[in-house]
Design a protein around this nucleic acid. Structure first.
Length: 266
DNA sequence: ATACCTGTTTCCCG
DNA sequence: CCGGGAAACAGGTA
């Protein structure tokens, strides 16, 4: 599930552990989420206090006393859980932080997620150098416009998934944006009119903010009239035109669109 | 059994 | 060096 808003919601599971010390640390023996880094260093978290929890796009950063920084990416199937004390690790639990009366868990069956632990006086470089958030006032039309100019031959679907420009944009969000903008996902930026670019920008803001307001705050789903509810399997119906949707691979990803609303021009 | 999958990185090509 | 596409990663689910 984890795109922008799901990541924000997952983060709230660990916010329940703010300002409490870590009593013990469990790390999975072979999970790929640690990549090739030494996982014994996670024992440094023992006795430290969780001080802050933030998300930016699909990235998460947790800070602990002792100048420790935990970077976390949920990958494709990762999720954060808040469990009662006495919880014993599931087969796919990569990291378990035990606190008084509760336990913070990172579980990721497919192990495409990633964990990294660093010590330092200030935030890690990979965090301070992150691109402008789609939810920020600094996220402006120029960012989209520059991306379009730089990647004229990429299908828009693939461009929207580029985290350097649209941090947090995931597969369902990109489909939602293009559907609302009435632009075919296979369309190349080359042929977008200025008017279409403006509409695209507006819908990026709409979907990012709308997702945060629904999914990000409460968990669960976006509003009922979103493409989201129709895009997951064949046979979906376009909520705007009431005609059948199409699903196919574009930009290497499963993509759903409404051939009635989104017409590919050359 | 077989195909499919909400993400990223790496490798290869032009 | 670059932009773009495919494959690989790994296990659950339909």
């Amino acid at each position: 599930m984890p795109e922008l808003a799901e990541v924000a919601y997952a983060c709230t599971m660990w916010e329940k552990g703010l300002n409490r010390p870590i009593q013990s640390v469990y790390t999975h023996k072979i999970s790929r989420v640690f990549r090739d880094e030494d996982r014994t260093c996670y024992q440094q978290l023992k006795g430290k206090t969780l001080r802050s929890a933030q998300t930016h796009g699909k990235q998460m950063l947790f800070s602990f006393s002792g100048n420790l920084w935990l970077g976390l990416h949920l990958g494709m199937t990762g999720w954060l859980y808040h469990e009662k004390s006495g919880y014993s690790p599931n087969k796919h639990d990569a990291l378990l932080l035990t606190q008084t009366n509760q336990c913070l868990v990172f579980r990721d069956p497919r192990q495409f997620g990633r964990l990294r632990l660093e010590q330092g006086k200030s935030v890690p470089t990979w965090w301070s150098e992150r691109p402008v958030s789609m939810l920020s006032k600094e996220f402006n039309f120029e960012i989209l416009s520059n991306a379009l100019k730089r990647h004229t031959k990429r299908p828009l679907k693939a461009l929207l998934l580029d985290q350097r420009y649209f941090p947090g944009m995931g597969n369902w969000m990109a489909d939602e944006v293009l559907w609302r903008a009435k632009i075919h996902p296979g369309c190349l930026s080359l042929i977008l009119s200025n008017q279409q670019q403006k509409v695209l920008f507006k819908q990026i803001l709409f979907v990012a903010n709308g997702a945060i307001k629904s999914v990000g705050v409460h968990g669960g789903d976006p509003p009922a009239n979103w493409l989201f509810h129709q895009r997951w399997k064949d046979g979906g119906i376009c909520p705007k035109s009431d005609t059948p949707l199409v699903r196919s691979q574009i930009g290497g990803r499963t993509t759903c669109w409404s051939p009635t609303l989104q017409v590919l021009r050359k």
